[in-house]
Design a protein around this nucleic acid. Structure first.
Lengths: 246, 246
DNA sequence: GGCATCTGTCTATGATGTAAACAGTTTCTT
DNA sequence: AAGAAACTGTTTACATCATAGACAGATGCC
């Protein structure tokens, strides 16, 4: 298990860095991740630039490149930081369904608190410690199901996909457009109004009906039940597989 | 239904542009969309820049801004172009389940053919003609279900979320990393190898087990059945709701 | 003590998205 | 018919970005 070929970031993230010669590093990837996450939380992902992160830390732009070899690396660090350690412990007698629900809700909470996570352009599979930790927890949820490893993996990814998608949808409907100085309500209403301007009821009867019902301009209680509703469906799909295997 | 307050792009996309004074436009948003999509298909989304699109069309960078007021607008045009008109017609006697399956498969096909769609940073809700057309088709699938408009919308979005997520997962596992001159197989193996380097079997038993089973380095037949598997689960979730309403 | 190796910094480069001013073209008004 | 008004694509300009390369100083090993 030599670290030789591993990218620098990974060695730093996993704490595999050995004694080195030169001056002691003044910051850590952890510092960098914290600073970057803070910026993204406050001003959105586009506000995260190498120079901004460095400035907030009190160093020059290029200093970051001693820890991170590219902006993609920075993104990876940010994700690791945003997810943090998977801190939920499954109740002793909980079945896979309950465990997976807890996992999904924890993931949802992360995404709700850091909506920019869904905008991070992914270019590599997750290899950071916390990401692997979440993966471990997700797979453990299926420990006693009799599923094959491949099936456990697929099932976990399915739930992950669902959580990401539904959260994206929800934050997208509430947070996204409020950057232009619009409240979410105003943004919703503007959307509905424009749809109304554009959509011919004869050609788009179903959209018109939805529009007329106010479903589009009123998102009350949408977010609340939507998550559980869909998750139940997804878990049912997995349950079919589990039953077949046992 | 005046177009007064509508952004230019929308008027152009919907063909609501009236007679104007100056010289006749030399290109159309359609041309721009086609060019941009071609670039994204060939070289990926990051390759799509204002200058590149303009150059490919034979004009200067700034000329695009006569049609599109920002890069976000360009993205909207690209999405409209990529989705195209929803061309599937539901069989006469098909139930909502069959209709929604057709819709989902059509959406999957679009995403498979234009993987970059999932990387487009969304900043506004969909208002382009083709997007609305897909929305209409999706809502129509639930026409005779007795669901409320809100529920139809939620159900459609749920399926959409699923399709986007699962497709992202699949293309992400096969296409993404092949940019660095790695085949997908090589990328998978590199990933598995690095995980193996980093993951302590005692601390990450489930990940280790998955790794040991080869599930991570061998993605054969993953894509094939995965889509239907998950979609069935999602539709079952919706079916529960439909049954309750009828 | 000297050398290799690391640190953060400085300077430089090419690419990007977009604002502003411009000259030419078409249509509308008179 | 003539001029004004509105639009076209172009040119020039700028701030910001990610990142490459060279540098002087710091630290640990021989």
């Amino acid at each position: 298990m030599s670290d030789d070929e591993l990218p620098r970031v990974l060695r730093l993230l996993w704490g595999h860095e050995e004694r080195r010669r030169g001056p002691k590093p003044a910051m850590s990837i952890h510092d960098i991740g914290t600073a970057a996450v803070k910026i993204a939380d406050a001003d959105g992902l586009p506000a995260v630039s190498m120079s901004r992160v460095a400035r907030d830390l009190g160093y020059t732009t290029m200093s970051l490149y001693r820890y991170v070899s590219s902006k993609d690396d920075l993104y990876a660090v940010m994700l690791d930081e945003a997810y943090g350690e998977f801190a939920v412990s499954y109740p002793a007698r909980a079945g896979w369904r309950r465990r997976m629900t807890l996992w999904a809700e924890a993931a949802r909470d992360v995404l709700t608190q850091h909506p920019w996570v869904l905008q991070v352009p992914l270019s590599e599979p997750p290899l950071s410690p916390n990401q692997v930790g979440w993966m471990e927890a997700g797979l453990q949820a299926f420990a006693d199901t009799g599923l094959t490893e491949q099936e456990k993996l697929s099932s976990m990814l399915l739930v992950d996909v669902y959580v990401r998608g539904i959260t994206q949808l929800m934050t997208y409907m509430t947070v996204a457009n409020s950057a232009d100085g619009l409240t979410e309500q105003e943004a919703d209403q503007l959307y509905a109004k424009r749809l109304d301007q554009l959509v011919d009821p004869e050609r788009y009867p179903a959209v018109s009906a939805a529009l007329g019902s106010g479903s589009l301009s009123d998102d009350s209680d949408f977010a609340v039940n939507e998550f559980d509703f869909g998750l139940k469906g997804v878990l049912n799909g997995i349950a079919a597989l589990v039953d077949r295997r046992s």
